[in-house]
Amino acid sequence: APSIGRAQEPIKWRFQTYAGAALGEQVTKPIVDYINTAAQGELEIELYYADQIVPTGELFQALQRGTIDAVHSDDDSMASPTPMRVFGGYFPFATKHILDVPVLFEQYGLADIWRSEYEKVGVTWLSAAGQDPCNFNTKKEITSLADLDGLKLYTFPTAGRFLSQFGVVPVNIPYEDAEVAVQTGELDGMAWSGITEDYTVGWANVTDYFLTNNISGAWIGSIFVNQQRWADLPEHLKTLVMSAIKAADTYRNQWYWGGEAKLRATGDKLQLRSVPPEEWAEVENAAKAFWKEIAQESEIHAKVVSIFEEYNGVINQAGPPYNF
């Protein structure tokens, strides 16, 4: 029954995102702003950026414990203890475009797998969305596969594992330190994002080249909530949270889609470079072997890989623009 007289104490959540402040402004803050405005004080969310309360690698444990109530991250960066970990972030060549992600989740069944796997470890998975592709921005020019050899790159763990067969040395440091690390020589660049992010977070200021070939067409990232906190939330607020997430997905879709095109075409900080498609096919073939390797790991792994294969079969048959 609605309480009469005294206003209800607001529910307060601490929400930490994988993104630093500059990027978080675009990819996470819209969700929080939407909720804070629309909830009229019933639910108040405080947003924290990368590594602010806990290091990103410890996010998952913090979420289970309730140190943090909600998280925006990919499974890989937050060191998820589920089999989903290798797929979140950038799974090599699993997607081509930003819209592939919601399609895979909603139409091909990934959402159910994700939801049930996270339930097992005491965390509520709410939603996944696509983001930018995974390109390279580096200090040295890359025009052939041989140029990858010996490059120290800031990248996702799974992408790093995959790329190390081409001589890439993946380096894992806190997100906010990556820019400085290029200047201190700890890094030669990043294999982390599309060009929009490079300009937004300042990486374009410290690197010179952008490789148009990508190793994945869209980042897969999710919103997670502490299980108890979610159960405690009244139905109407649950609906509000979900619609805020969807609204922010729409904003993010156009922000990235438009940003990638515009900055490639008119940005003056990064020069574009490409590896010829025939040569890049070698990387794509390596990805197929990598998928097989991952599928061996468990039944769930095999299931997800088979979904990727199914979807890729469909878009290859459909032709452009789906498969490019």
Partner: peptide, 12 residues
């Protein structure tokens, strides 16, 4: 013991 935590890096 369950899933043994690995460092989120390529060296893992």
């Amino acid at each position: 013991m369950g899933y043994l935590e690995r460092s989120p890096s390529a060296w893992r």
